[in-house]
Computed example of a mutant assay.
Amino acid sequence: MSEPQIHVRLAVQAESAAFTTQASSLAQQLNLPQVAADSAADEWDLLLQVGSFGLRLQELGKGAPGPVWVDFAGGANAHRRQFGGGAGQMVAKAVGVKGGVRPTVLDATAGLGRDAFVLASLGCVVTLIERVPLVAALLADGLARATADPDAAPIVRNMSLLHGDAIALMRDWQGEAPQVIHLDPMFPHRDKSALVKKEMRLFRPLVGDDDDAHDLLAAALALATHRVVVKRPRKAPAVAGIAPAQVLAGQSSRYDIYPLKSLSKL
């Protein structure tokens, strides 16, 4: 999975002078320009802002939505943890969470980490891979801030982040192989919620499509010990035309399940 080319005008900005050093370090790390804290920044499409709130991505221009950031302690993640349905959620069923079964999971397309957080909150140890440096930075920031929250801290201790090419990392995996690999290749989703629309609007030019999803699936099938699960839009074709042994369908999305060994034998 090659790193996508960014086709938007993106810069790093500090909330105030107190965060200038931190913003400079991040700009250097991500190879992005930096704008002053008091700059109107009219020539930019997006700003990666550093401040007391942590790290957030803000679109500029008339009618731009609010910022996107990773918040495991509050917001949608906290609501889903408390009221989302626990082990009855589709992602939990797909990876095989049931009874005393809590498989180790590799989320090879981590994104903003929502599914990984759900699985970690249910007791799974989850490794996350994110290939896009900016998204990985948002995710790392969210994980770091969550360690200060008494409810989220025990959950994120079950989560570890790797930044890199998921295909290469899986092909050269070091250590014990994950029992389950979760994949969610980028696809033109049709979810109509405002939050998803906002995030897709921001991330599509940054992330691009996973044109090599077939290689991603092949690497996952070669590494996982028990199963691979692939999240897809409900009516999308199976990745690489490889029919799954089982399909778990929801209202707008589904999970294609490729079993390798029974999880009941864990």
Rank of each mutant, 00 (worst) to 15 (best):
V132Y: 06
P178T: 12
S160L: 14
A116D: 00
L112E: 03
N158K: 11
A108C: 09
A144R: 12
L139G: 01
D149S: 03
L112S: 01
G100R: 11
L162V: 15
P150K: 06
P103G: 11
G123S: 10
L119K: 02
G175C: 08
D165N: 11
A152C: 05
T104C: 07
D184E: 08
G164Q: 07
A136H: 12
P154V: 13
A116E: 03
A177N: 10
D107G: 00
A120T: 03
T147P: 06
L161P: 03
T147H: 11
L128V: 11
L143T: 05
L112G: 01
L128F: 08
A177L: 15
E130C: 10
R157G: 09
L119D: 01
A136N: 12
L183F: 09
I167G: 04
H182R: 07
Q174G: 13
P133H: 06
A136V: 12
V132W: 05
V180C: 01
M170S: 09
D165I: 14
D141N: 15
P133Y: 08
A153W: 04
P178R: 06
D165C: 13
A152S: 00
R131D: 06
P178L: 09
D107S: 05
G100A: 15
L134V: 12
G111H: 05
T104G: 07
L161E: 02
G99M: 11
G164L: 09
L169A: 05
D184M: 04
L138E: 07
A152T: 00
A140F: 07
V180R: 00
N158A: 15
G123P: 00
N158L: 10
A153H: 04
V180F: 01
T127W: 03
Q179V: 14
G99F: 10
T109C: 01
S160Q: 13
D141C: 11
V118Y: 00
A152D: 05
P103Q: 10
A116W: 01
A136D: 10
E176Q: 14
M170A: 09
D107P: 03
C124S: 06
P133A: 11
A110H: 00
A148N: 12
A116L: 02
A144D: 13
A140W: 06
H163G: 15
V105H: 02
L128E: 07
F117P: 04
A140D: 06
